[in-house]
Design a protein around this nucleic acid. Structure first.
Lengths: 202, 202
DNA sequence: TTCATTTCTTAACATAGGTGAATGGATTCA
DNA sequence: TGAATCCATTCACCTATGTTAAGAAATGAA
């Protein structure tokens, strides 16, 4: 089996994903994936560690991770879950060499295609289709963060949970409950209580 | 007085601000400001209205504004205050023609240089120094939003207020207290209570 | 299969912040 | 200047979530 053929299989999902919004020539796409290194993370393994420099950005090809901040009291707050086709890592740390403000940890066995800063910036410079595609991705993740900030402030934990059940039942299925609680900004006990209210009063 | 001279005065602060991080030639800078329209907002006047399309992004040349989301119950949450040298407006709405997720309102008489989408994208295309400068600005505001999301979740209202007093005493001075409360995510009465605790127990 | 570990649930009590109402001081405006 | 409005404060009471602790259920490892 040729290397090219292997690449096609390995990156077929990524290709399909980028082609959904932007067209890449074969050459552009091959150039793009040449900067990516596939790595497999075991369950609970870290992709990014809070307070350390985030050296890689990564594209999720299978499995899932969660990005979470740990505060001084040791409490964790989950900022997002990263599934298939998400980019993850702390961009701020990645670009400016500052310490990461959160960790990113695999919740299952997870395959990631990662890139370091040198390759990343080279690719942004040399592959306009990638630059354009990534700019839109960045805009969307900014948008999502702003929306999460708004939701966090304006909804009760119960409202947030009901919304999650409605909009992303797959997440509720797939992710252990105490992580869901930390995503909603509450303790596992409180989520249990909320679930009891919901399923009892019906 | 020539138009050029007027421009120099009008945009001298903006020039100083952009030159602090990136170099613009005179030509680039003049091209850039040619897409900006100065407008003066009276106190309480809106620059962006929630649920309407945000047609302009604006650079704050004097005065200040607040960006806030109003939820179904009518409660307001202030996402940020925009002072001198900030860009404001809902980028998501601006770019994708979706309804704004928040309003931006002048807290004092405020001068803004605004641009519509056509001119904005033209400028991004034609002025690389602007493109580069704005990309960094965008990254920083993404970073700030992420940080606010983390702070919102992990700090008590009292901690947030003490931090604000320490890091931005000017904001606490300049902005009416009920807006500060809404920035901290609490009601004015609760901020009063917190202030009482702080200044009493000392 | 069994033992250890992790996750989920429940309950009693504690606390931060919300609610509604009253008051007085400050601004604004005719 | 006076009336109207807005703003900050206080208080008594309410509610959502946190805390601590215990046990049950599920999962994983040997």
């Amino acid at each position: 089996m040729s290397g090219i053929k292997n690449n096609k299989d390995k990156f077929s999902n990524l290709r399909k994903h980028v082609e959904a919004t932007d067209h890449f020539t074969d050459e552009e796409f091959n150039h793009f994936v040449s900067i990516l290194t596939p790595v497999t993370l075991q369950k609970k393994e870290f992709f990014t560690v809070q307070n350390e420099h985030c050296r890689y950005l990564g594209f999720v090809n299978s499995g899932c991770l969660r990005a979470f901040h740990t505060d001084d009291k040791g409490d964790e707050f989950t900022m997002y879950f990263a599934f298939l086709n998400w980019w993850t890592g702390d961009k701020t740390s990645f670009y400016s060499n500052s310490p990461s403000r959160f960790s990113v940890q695999a919740l299952e066995e997870t395959e990631i295609f990662r890139a370091d800063k040198t390759n990343w910036e080279k690719a942004l410079d040399e592959i306009p289709a990638f630059e354009k595609w990534y700019r839109v991705k960045t805009r969307k993740s900014y948008e999502a963060t702003q929306q999460k900030l708004i939701d966090t402030q304006t909804e009760s934990a119960e409202e947030k949970y009901l919304k999650l059940l409605k909009n992303s039942p797959d997440i509720v299925q797939r992710i252990p409950q105490h992580y869901i609680a930390s995503y909603l900004g509450i303790k596992p006990q409180s989520l249990s209580r909320i679930r009891k209210n919901i399923f009892h009063s019906k």
